[in-house]
Write a protein that binds this DNA or RNA. Sequence first.
RNA 1: GGCGGCGUAGUCCAACGGCAGAGACAGGCGACUUAAAAUCGCUCCAGUAUGGGUUCGAAUCCCAUCGCCGCCA
Length: 955
Amino acid sequence: MRKPYPFDRIEPKWQAAWEAARTFHVPNPGEPGFDPAQPKYYVLDMFPYPSGAGLHVGHPIGYIATDIIARFKRMRGFNVLHPMGWDAFGLPAEQYAIKTGQHPAITTARNVARFKKQLEIIGLGYDWQREINTTDPGYYKWTQWIFLQLYNAWFNPATNKAEPVSTYTGEDVDSVRLAYVSEAPVNWCPALGTVLANEEVIDGKSEVGGHPVERRPMRQWMLRITAYAQRLIDELDGLDWPESIQLLQRNWIGRSEGAEVHFPILSATQAEGSEELTSSGAMNWMRIGGTHVTVFTTRPDTLFGATYMVLAPEHKLVDAITTEEQWPAVRDYRERTARKSDLERTELSKEKTGVFTGAYAINPVNGERIPIWIADYVLLGYGTGAIMAVPAHDERDFEFAQKYALPIREVVSPEPRLSGGGTSPCDMPLLECFAGEGYAVNSAIIDGLPTAEAKVKITAWLEERGLGKKTINYKLRDWLFSRQRYWGEPFPIVWEHGKHRPLPENELPLTPPPLDDFKPTGTGEPPLAKATEWIRYSENATRETNTMPQWAGSCWYYLRYCDPGNAARFIGETAERYWMGGKPDVSASAESRTAAKTIVGSSGDPAGMANTIVGSSGDPAGTAKTIVDGPGDPAGTANTIVGSFADHAGTPKTSAGTPAEASRMRPGGVDLYVGGTEHAVLHLLYARFWHKVLFDLGHLSTPEPFQRLVNQGMMLGEDGQKMSKSRGNVVNPDDVIAEYGADAFRCYEMFMGPLEQMKPWSMTGVEGVSRFLARVWRLIMEEKQDGSWALSPGVQETEPDKAQLKVIHGTIKKVTGDIETLSFNTAISAMMVFVNAFTNAEVKPLSAMRTLLVLLNPFAPHLTEELWETLGGTSTIANQPWPSFDESYLVEDEIEIVLQINGKLRDKIVVRKDATKEQVEAAARDSAKIAEWTAGKEIKKVIVVPGKLVNIVVG
RNA sequence: GGCGGCGUAGUCCAACGGCAGAGACAGGCGACUUAAAAUCGCUCCAGUAUGGGUUCGAAUCCCAUCGCCGCCA
């Protein structure tokens, strides 16, 4: 096929030129060529796993978006950090190794090369001097080092931050370490031969491969992320993340406020004798240390309605309390439960099942004797593994009580009213479950109180008597951090006499042993156990044989990019403070730096950790004032953020066209982070957790890793279905680029629609964008008889006329604003308008063409480089300054005003742009059509919107 | 079941609460051509999922319903 313009020649040419000139390399502070006068901008893509399948057209959307931003920011005078690397440890490579016997390092290297090539032909301007790979010993040395930081730290609740274990005064340090060993039941996947984190188990199956997963107790390394639950919620506040992602994280952490309540348990004989205990009896019971079950409830106000109790079938106490008569039924039920997954157990649609244990507990608020059941709808992992059942006010308890004829007592009423409710077993199906809030009834001490007050009062009452206390519960579990794999980071830990201890730092990196057989042992013993020599650390000590999960390397990669070659530290302090600096974002462009200087701030804190920003002269709205930390707090414990943040979308613009972003505190270091929603919870939560630990321990200067997060939407196949091999609708970028060129590919991906939105691929759509680029080409080039291209004689050094100036400056304004808000589709549309406006002009002013090329450069870098060179540009266009616009070219002397009657368009008039309200209204009344519409009617009101419209309300 | 997001021409998508159209695809017509492709020009096409509400004025804000998508159960 004949090419509309010679992209096949110019694209490789410029890719080679950028590589040779290291155009997109950015030096670090202190290195030659570093310009300290320029502000930094760190724009990051989510870390790719280089799979054997290569890229499909959905993957690069985010990469193209960040590339446009990176190129744009460079032209705006920023030092732009825009790196790429490889999250190369992981299961697929290992399983391929098992199948083929080829070492995963070999296949990984091959996949990385393929991925890199695919990214290069898209023309992405990465700083490849900073390329990193998690499987590189120079990299995972520091992953292991960070693990040791976690191992050697504990979370001090008093200071609300991590501290070295040396500050821990308790007896057993091992019980508080942020990295600890646990024997708890884990998700064991026999097919994969490894344990999985809760997050890696979907619907009872492994996320990778969809294999069945079972619960099995094993010794595992855990990370104490739960210690950070509250901070992980609170510190989302200062971030520019989509509301929906923040919500996902909050829901995942799952904070709920409620109370722990202790229920004394009677043995079978005790239960015989005592029909009812009093609540003071329960107090005594607790005081003398009698057996009891603790439950967590978010509704302590319903305690009087707790008519029975349910334990998870695996609950430790079940063995102790079950009566002889009930034992066979209980044992049988437990066996059946063990075969079910958590999902099967909790699914609401399924019928509830359970068995009575024969034992009774005492409801501490009224001394009532209530039966204890076991049921699989109660999970050991949530809360305390036991619940108080309030059938009148909880759907699941209600269902259960109906099935087993247990008493249902109403204790909350939607309307305030006098007491009066049932205590008898449920044989009245008309009773409805009410789970909402209301007013307490049948609840003695809290009768009549609205739910919120009832909760407070009953909790205080329990607390006074030692029967319970206010508690905050989190759904978040500690992070299962070990895997029985070969292709992962070995733990820097050795075992001696059953005790673990860390390797000294100077023994890092700990490299995995060479191994020929990567197969799981099948026993749960990791593959590393086969390396008998390697395991042997000393006479008495052996190495830990588990490896770290894939998440480990991706938890801190964004830090390593800042200083990838540093052999002495995981990230150099200067580089960290520059690239990850949480300074206020006062300068959206280099031009506005002068304005930025007028902002009062900079505490002069040498550690660069505390900033106090007071107001900002560059903030037209005058609303954004943020205060963070105090200078006397170098470790940054007081990282609460006070004040409001300026709306990002509402960035005001000065007449010179340089956005003066409001002064704002930025707790996060990466300025823009783009990736898919699939990492909304796990990766982003884990990375934030590690970052906070490193921050607390004084290794980092900001409390959060990612300031602004954007999720790109999924790319669907041409059939509107999810792209997948099995559907056969996968489009390969290499093919698209071969046919239409990388620039067309880039522009099309951005032109399809908003970045965040899901959208279907369309080949004809690529063609349309390709036509647009060809029009740009022919604006400047002319085809000769022999088919070669030469500079068009239409391009001349003349001044654009007034109409052209309006187009030029309007386009600069639109494109600049749209790139800032990532509205790339409308930016391209604006440039199409520009091109259409000049296509038929006999003379194309050189300056206008140059402006267009600069605006288009971030989108279509190869085409614009080539044309820039043809137009006599000396240096690469990538180094050109971004054009500014002059608002005065955009205003018209006369403007059209819309005339409405009752909000409906009836006429249009033209008035001078500086016409007063009165003049506009008078002109409107002069309109013949308006006179017609208002004839004989009463004019009730006239709304005049200056420069826009006049609306006349008639009755 | 709960939470969140999205429903605008045949299609992808625009539209500070103010004339529903920036742009593109597809379609139609014309110019160029022996013809076609390419190119250039012109053009058709929706009253914004549905029903209420707020407002001088609603695609936009609020409520409900339906449909699709995501997350959690």
